[in-house]
Design a binder for these strands. Structure first.
Lengths: 339, 339
DNA sequence: GTGAAAGCGCTAACAT
DNA sequence: ATGTTAGCGCTTTCAC
């Protein structure tokens, strides 16, 4: 059942039905009675305009694309939720694509979304290389990067203040007397990790501590790899007395390693991790975390994107929005024991 | 840039371009040379068929809808990931909608998806009432329910063996000597909870234990509420010596309560929870869980749906697929202490 | 082997 | 106040 057949059924033209169904009956001064007629019958017959045909005609789908590296990572799940909610409130539908931490899959996701004529795209890139994003940039599609971003790409972008967060964490550890503070990182080529490592180094340097290459370990967003690297950290002599894990997945790997070695937190090792999680308080001891403003990141990303869409893709005010990270101190950090 | 302008540019008809771009050049015996010409130029100019227009013409969007109650629940995130991956492999795009545990939002999600002319829908209903699903059923859209389901609705459905899982957990606890086994449930009107409670009662009854109303607590999928109910359980005299939590969120609430009361697991209370999670092994003690076959559930749901789509919505073989749940025993359960 | 024309369901410009 | 017509970009029937 479509507008045309409804129009025939009522003995009026498709245009009139279209106008009324679009809620613009008054604007076209269509008789109240006619309007009521149309609306009632449409509701009774369950007739709704075909969004596909509308989109084709209007050259606008009222659909946003969202590409994230891994929906099973709670951080991205929360981000997706926030984006979805905000988009819905603004009358947009979200097409979600999971790039599975792969540049190739990411490129394919983007192609598919472009083929579907989305109105705009929110992209949390896998990171590393941006070569595969050229066609996207060339397409002039309104685009907002979020979380991991390529600063070289001139788009709107929304990130957490990863630098400040990491620096604050290190400073807190220093205040507790720690001097050998290790850092467990993810993919080194992701902007998020770059910023956090920069913050880590800034924190050290501001405390007059030297950055030690061997205390910066990791290189993948994986619990298993994080475990291995932490095991290696724990074998060092002298070993670090504190660790900053740059994501929740990495923290889980670190915790595995600590447990395997029969060590105690914070007695043997203090631990701070990025990402607040529901289970953080339930560990023994509860985990000190750096809470990202993930809700805001999603909301702002949608808002920025919608601005762009309204202005026809033309950039506006400052490109980069940075949102604050909050240190939530719990019992997983403590004063450094005497050597 | 579209097929028509590419055709003009090459001085040939749009039909020919369309046929070649659809990979059906040979079928229509179009000259190899012409084909190569078209393909090369299309690639060079970055021309790809407009999926919107194709969908309108073909009356098929190659898009599946997926409606879940809460993407920030790791179980549903994992389900979404599996669905997305399988759908992509079969050439479908997935429109994900989060119903926010609300029947109303769910109804609206479904309406939006129907308006977009999806080819089929995978639905994990909020539960409770199915009245708002009438228009969906009436629409004859190929439909597969997953996880929470309405058995009254005659659709394909994929679920975990919730009954067997819960029963097995209770039996294990009984074997360890427990006689007062409580159950922390979610929304009582969700099919998943109904089945798990049925399994809980079956487990008790097969062990010759009486079901006690007061030991069955809860009623919402929320960590905070679960905490409160567990606190109440812990105040009972005599109090239960073991608890079966019917989801990961509920387990977190239970753990909060236990910690608040200064009790020890498994000494004071044994705990088994539905849903395996990355952090399960890192609790103290590690948590015994009932692992759901969430990957399979997603994959099978897509496969069943695609079968339906192929057969034009006509049901096939058995409607309900039940996949096994696995008990993963860890240190959160132990023998009952003497009273 | 290829092209011309019709039509998927809608909306907007141009009637009246 | 409402209708007629054209066209969004594609595919397919029919024609040569």
């Amino acid at each position: 059942m479509n507008l045309k057949s409804l129009a025939q059924h009522l003995g009026i033209s498709a245009s009139t039905v279209s106008r009324v169904m679009a809620g613009r009956g008054d604007e076209f001064r269509i008789a109240k009675e006619t309007q009521r007629h149309i609306l009632d019958e449409a509701a009774a017959m369950g007739v709704r305009p075909d969004e596909l045909a509308r989109s084709l005609r209007l050259q606008s789908t009222r659909t946003l694309g969202l590409v994230i590296p891994d929906i099973s990572n709670p951080f991205f799940a929360a981000l997706a939720r926030a984006v979805e909610r905000r988009a819905r409130a603004l009358g947009y539908t979200v097409l979600l694509a999971d790039s599975q931490e792969s540049d190739e899959v990411e490129a394919e996701c983007i192609r598919t979304l472009l083929d579907r004529r989305i109105d705009g795209l929110i992209l949390a890139p896998v990171g590393g290389d941006s070569a595969h994003l050229r066609p996207l940039i060339a397409s002039m599609l309104p685009l907002t990067q979020v979380d991991r971003i390529f600063t070289a790409l001139k788009t709107a972008a929304v990130v957490a203040d990863n630098f400040a967060g990491a620096r604050e964490a290190v400073k807190r550890l220093v205040k507790l007397g720690h001097r050998r503070i290790a850092c467990l990182q993810g993919r080194e080529d992701s902007s998020v990790i770059v910023e956090r490592v920069r913050g880590y180094r800034a924190g050290l340097s501001e405390a007059g501590l030297r950055f030690e290459e061997k205390f910066l370990v990791g290189g993948e967003h994986s619990q298993a790899i994080a475990r291995e690297h932490t095991l290696r950290l724990l074998e060092m002599k002298p070993r670090p007395t504190a660790v900053l894990a740059l994501s929740n997945q990495l923290a889980l790997g670190a915790l595995e390693a600590v447990r395997e070695r029969g060590l105690v937190i914070p007695g043997d090792l203090s631990l701070i991790a990025f990402d607040e999680q529901p289970w953080a308080t339930l560990l023994s001891p509860p985990l000190t975390t750096l809470a990202q403003p993930v809700e805001d990141m999603g909301t702002v990303a949608v808002d920025r994107l919608c601005e762009l869409i309204k202005r026809g893709g033309k950039a506006t005010r400052k490109a980069l929005t940075t949102l604050p990270v909050r240190l939530i101190e719990r019992a997983s950090i403590g004063p450094k024991k005497k050597d």
